[in-house]
Design a protein around this nucleic acid. Structure first.
Lengths: 340, 340
DNA sequence: AGAGACTTCCAAAGCGCTTTGGCTATTTTG
DNA sequence: CAAAATAGCCAAAGCGCTTTGGAAGTCTCT
């Protein structure tokens, strides 16, 4: 059932039927009703390919997926996606994943924009002065960044959590508990979120006359193994830290293992706080010692990004509005006063 | 730069240029070269929307993503995706994720097929007599199932691992080590992979005059917490199992925690084997006691599915070819002879 | 040399929608 | 009451590609 057939049944022109369906004003309400009715009754659905060709709009949002033998997709991605899907489903928005060589995402961005394959894109894990962001900005496709960049002379729309605030609060708590030697096991130091977290921690330390030693900060890919290694190295120092703040639950697993291997205890010998993106399959309250966390649901962020992308596509949202979500500090058994 | 312009520059018809570019035989090789050259020089890329409308082919593969507030996307998904992307990237294939209400995926399948949004789809986590599979089969869109179903009177193309064989081998090993009370912590019992694993285990037990008691099998969503709970319940029985086979590394984390909580040890009191889909961020060799596993890279499976989908789209693969990959049994420190 | 068979190219008709630029009644306005 | 404005509809021109159905030119064969 296509427009031609439908309009023929109704003895109307394609123009009128199209307009009636798309809510244009220049059509009699009575006529519109007739059209809508017939459309529903016959299950007419405009052919998206045709509509695309005519309008240039695809009804899809895009994401360029960096891939490569050495590239691992962040497990957070799936949770974000989950939230995105929650919103997108209700609006019949599809998501197009365009796999790209991690070393050359530009080509792919250019392609999907030139081809008008998607109406908007979102970027994640941005870095300072991220080239993708500059690119997408000049290409002129609607977009939203999940996270933030730095060092641009233009503004851009983003959704981020208050990473700096979160780690500032976590550190402040530990300091108040008497800890003086804090350490940070962070994510990739080139990503903005990691920079912000470090900044928040340094700020809290500085405010109390403390500092984060060169050796007390590890920036690594967020795997269990890296968490373990970093923790081992930290705890085997001459003057080991008495508290660790860690950028992910997965790394925290490794930290816990290291602590055990060394015959230490949490929170007796070491206080531990980690950031929790809220995975359904790994929860901080179920750690051997319930883990204190800075918590922010990445899933909700996904839903919000989808919502804002939809708004931008339909022109409801404009400009470079940045949105920063506060982060909860959830205190559980893994923190205690500094050992004497 | 569109076809019209390009053909005009070359003083050729659109027909000829189109054919030259698409490798049709009825064009002089000399002409083809000229066309190819000019196309490359001017960076001509056919507009996919137009091509789609004309051919009905979209150059994309689809996946219907079940979503909902209570629905969690499997973390395996991201690894599978990673593999899929590896292949797809090289072939400029994009992946369309269509979020669907988990209780009504049918509507979405029908939509993407009717709209010809994608050239092929893949299904994952199939169940016996899975409705999606029957649907997709009648809708006549090329597809591949990642995993297997059961109870259909038709064949279908799939890629699966030998879950039954894997758990058979794992169980056999444990039995050979003298274990008589084995337990299984499985995934959702309605999914075929879980059924196959249980079957493999039962077969190994039966071959040795043993059985899997009602109470010695838990089928749960694969989270750390569920692994913990199942293990607790198992180990607090009057006659607790001396060996557990577990369907995922994430649940195995919970098992290890339970064992510790109860003051038991691995492998002294309990031998443990888990299935490993090969996550980059959680590796069995890094468990407190290195974990024995049945191993199969889900990432490679993703790449293979993409490859086969591409082959089906282009007509290179036909029929209902099923492909079953063997699974490695990797023995590490978590298994030992049964306690006396 | 003329018929038949290739080879090589082209004009034009789709694909199914949106949108521009009228055209005809009907209503409003001065 | 004529002129102007408005409401409601339509024909046709895109969007940019593929593909059908020739047509013209070149070879081959008898």
């Amino acid at each position: 059932m296509n427009l031609k057939q439908l309009s023929h049944m109704l003895s109307l022109s394609q123009t009128t039927v199209s307009r009636a369906l798309n809510g244009y004003p220049e059509v009699n309400e009575e006529t519109r009703r007739r059209v809508m009715d017939a459309a529903k009754r016959h299950g007419y659905r405009p052919n998206p390919s045709a509509r695309r060709l005519a309008t240039g709009k695809s009804g899809m949002i895009g994401y360029v997926l960096p891939t490569g033998a050495a590239v691992d997709i962040d497990p957070h991605f799936v949770e974000f996606l989950s939230g995105l899907g929650d919103y997108a489903r209700a609006h019949e928005l599809d998501l197009v994943l365009s796999p790209a060589d991690a070393d050359d995402e530009e080509t792919t961005y250019r392609r999907i924009v030139a081809n008008r394959q998607v109406d908007a894109v979102y970027l994640s894990s941005p870095r300072p002065a991220d080239k993708r962001l500059a690119l997408v900005n000049t290409l002129g496709i609607p977009f939203i960044v999940h996270g933030r960049s730095e060092g641009f002379d233009f503004d851009y729309p983003y959704l981020d959590i208050d990473n700096e605030g979160a780690f500032h609060e976590a550190s402040r708590l530990l300091i108040q508990l008497g800890h003086k030697r804090l350490a940070l096991i962070n994510g990739n130091e080139r990503e903005t979120f990691a920079i912000h977290r470090e900044r928040g921690m340094r700020r809290a330390l500085a405010a109390n006359g403390l500092a984060l030693g060169e050796r007390h900060i590890h920036s690594v890919a967020m795997t269990e193994e890296n968490g373990y290694r970093a923790a081992r190295r930290l705890l085997e120092e001459v003057e080991p830290p008495t508290a660790i703040v860690c950028s992910s639950l997965i790394m925290a697993l490794g930290v816990v293992r290291a602590v055990r291997d060394l015959g230490l205890t949490i929170p007796g010998d070491l206080s531990l706080v980690a950031h929790d993106d809220v995975f359904p399959w790994l929860r901080p309250e179920n750690f051997p010692v319930p883990l204190s966390t800075t918590r922010s649901s990445i899933r909700l962020a996904g839903a919000r990004v989808a919502e804002r992308l939809a708004a931008r596509i339909s022109g409801l949202e404009e400009g470079a509005r940045g949105e920063v979500w506060p982060v909860d500090l959830v205190v559980r058994g893994s923190v205690a006063g500094a050992p004497v």
